[in-house]
Amino acid sequence: MTLELAIRLTEILLGISLVQQSIEHLQLHKLLRVLYLFRIILALLLIIGLQVYWVSIFLLLLAVFILHRFQGPYNGGADRMSLLVLCCVCLYYFAPSKYWQEIAFAYLAIQLLLSYFISGWVKLINSDWRNGRALRDVFQFSAYPVSESIRTWSESPRLLFLMSWSIILFELLLPMLIMSEITLAIALVIAACFHFVNACIFGLNRFFWAWIAAYPSVLWLQLRLFTNS
């Protein structure tokens, strides 16, 4: 995968993510409707690849305005990842040379890998995660489960223990699978399924779209590091 193709795929996936987020805001914030309509138009231009240089700058300015409006990210990690992807796309277009373009895009790939590894590490060093208690808490009383029936999963400690260790090991191992194209592809499919499940049971749909927008960067980095030599 060439750098240009990976950037184009990132732009398309980021555009889809931004359209999805903005359409939801059209219903919620009547006063901000014009702003989100403008963002949808810009995101569509990003998807079709028209004037991407200017479009990405305008999208970044809008993102800063939205950060001020909500005094921080509206949807925590999902908004932060979207913003990170957008910043890296902007940096790619602003970079003075191919070398710096690669640095900007590699930074996105490294942050994506870190997003899994650090999440796994902080769980591994927490005894509540190792014995399944933390995940039980998530289901039992956190604000995330989408229904009361999903809360009842907290009554299955053996299942939660297995789930906890599956999550910890998967998050820790994912960055190491970058060594091979095939293992990385498999890992990213599993990661996308993981985000899909999170979206279903915790309603974190924006995370799914935001994270997969960063996947082309790591696919490109894998080829850049281990194939092009």
Partner: peptide, 23 residues
């Protein structure tokens, strides 16, 4: 303020669900 808002996106901590705090 803008830098303060942007920085967590550019240098994220990625500590998702490290501890399950008061909900």
């Amino acid at each position: 303020k803008t830098i303060k808002l942007l920085l967590p996106a550019l240098l994220p901590s990625w500590r998702f669900f490290d501890t399950i705090g008061p909900s």
